[in-house]
Simulated scan of single mutants.
Amino acid sequence: MELTTGLRRIGNDIVAAHLVVRDDGITLIDAGLAGHWNDLKRELTAIGRTPSDIRGVVLTHGDSDHIGFAERLRSDYGVPVFVHAADAARARGEESTKPTWGGMRIGPVLRFLAYAIRQGGLRTRYLTEVREVADGQVLDLPGSPEVIGLPGHSPGSIAIHVPDVSAVFVGDGLTTGHVLTGKQGPQPAPFTDDQAAALSSLVRLERLNVDWVIPGHGKPWHGGIAEVLSAYRDVAEA
């Protein structure tokens, strides 16, 4: 699905990944769930591209619902996968955390779990090789994505700023659709290691001038940074 010229989405408001499409190739932001592979192929076919046009996958963090088909791209097509050093072990399946689930409602939880299972969430292939990135790094990939450290959800969570499409991808730094409660609008994401750190980290996005703020879960936000952060803080600090 096209959000704007050069920016496309696969998946849905439950779990999504995004493609930055430029003349020199494609940068994939996150890799959703394993079953999103078929969505990826359909999206690429629709724009006359193939997996070989993908120059790199940049992970906002190393959780299983963001690395879905990344190893398939890496092993079958030689696509490098980039992740912050602090989340590299998580992306390789060498460590994990079990943060509290927090509040929930049975309907949204069942929808989330059912969707994750249908999309291969139980057959995630962890990465066998990653390229580590650091805060402030600008990657030599289509769109020149900039890495912005956003620790809190996980130690190596990052935002990815792509000025070419006027967007910042925040992963689980925040959500606009809570998969456990069904609540809509900017708010803290579930399964977060350190909510206080996540809140503090978001100040690093205030300098950005973008049209799109795009989480891994929930609707893309089209309205700028100041508005989304204000709405988030109203919920987080209530």
Results as ranks from 00 to 15, higher is better:
residue 86 A to L: 13
residue 96 S to G: 10
residue 67 I to D: 00
residue 44 L to H: 01
residue 66 H to V: 14
residue 93 G to I: 15
residue 101 W to I: 14
residue 89 A to W: 08
residue 45 T to G: 13
residue 86 A to M: 10
residue 61 H to P: 10
residue 99 P to W: 08
residue 59 L to W: 09
residue 58 V to T: 02
residue 38 N to T: 04
residue 39 D to M: 00
residue 74 R to W: 07
residue 99 P to V: 11
residue 65 D to V: 11
residue 95 E to A: 11
residue 51 P to F: 15
residue 69 F to N: 00
residue 41 K to A: 09
residue 98 K to S: 09
residue 94 E to N: 03
residue 70 A to P: 04
residue 84 H to E: 06
residue 80 P to H: 10
residue 40 L to Y: 02
residue 96 S to E: 11
residue 47 I to S: 01
residue 82 F to C: 00
residue 45 T to L: 13
residue 44 L to S: 04
residue 42 R to L: 15
residue 48 G to T: 05
residue 84 H to I: 05
residue 39 D to A: 11
residue 80 P to T: 02
residue 52 S to D: 10
residue 69 F to T: 00
residue 92 R to L: 15
residue 80 P to Y: 11
residue 78 G to S: 07
residue 84 H to C: 07
residue 78 G to A: 10
residue 43 E to I: 02
residue 75 S to T: 15
residue 71 E to G: 12
residue 72 R to Y: 13
residue 84 H to K: 09
residue 96 S to R: 07
residue 56 G to Q: 05
residue 93 G to A: 14
residue 99 P to T: 06
residue 91 A to F: 08
residue 41 K to C: 13
residue 98 K to I: 00
residue 67 I to S: 04
residue 83 V to Y: 05
residue 54 I to T: 03
residue 70 A to I: 05
residue 99 P to Y: 11
residue 77 Y to P: 05
residue 60 T to N: 08
residue 46 A to T: 00
residue 85 A to R: 14
residue 45 T to D: 11
residue 93 G to V: 13
residue 91 A to V: 06
residue 48 G to P: 12
residue 42 R to S: 10
residue 51 P to W: 03
residue 51 P to Q: 01
residue 101 W to F: 15
residue 87 D to K: 04
residue 65 D to W: 05
residue 93 G to E: 14
residue 83 V to S: 00
residue 78 G to W: 03
residue 49 R to P: 09
residue 98 K to G: 13
residue 41 K to I: 15
residue 62 G to I: 09
residue 88 A to I: 15
residue 61 H to D: 14
residue 53 D to E: 06
residue 50 T to M: 13
residue 78 G to D: 05
residue 70 A to M: 09
residue 40 L to W: 00
residue 59 L to I: 02
residue 100 T to E: 02
residue 86 A to C: 11
residue 47 I to C: 00
residue 62 G to K: 02
residue 78 G to F: 00
residue 87 D to Y: 14
residue 60 T to A: 11
residue 95 E to V: 13
residue 45 T to P: 05
residue 68 G to E: 12
residue 62 G to E: 05
residue 84 H to N: 08
residue 84 H to M: 04
residue 48 G to L: 11
residue 54 I to A: 07
residue 58 V to W: 08
residue 44 L to Q: 09
residue 81 V to T: 05
residue 60 T to Y: 07
residue 76 D to R: 12
residue 89 A to T: 04
residue 54 I to Q: 01
residue 68 G to P: 15
residue 48 G to R: 06
residue 38 N to W: 10
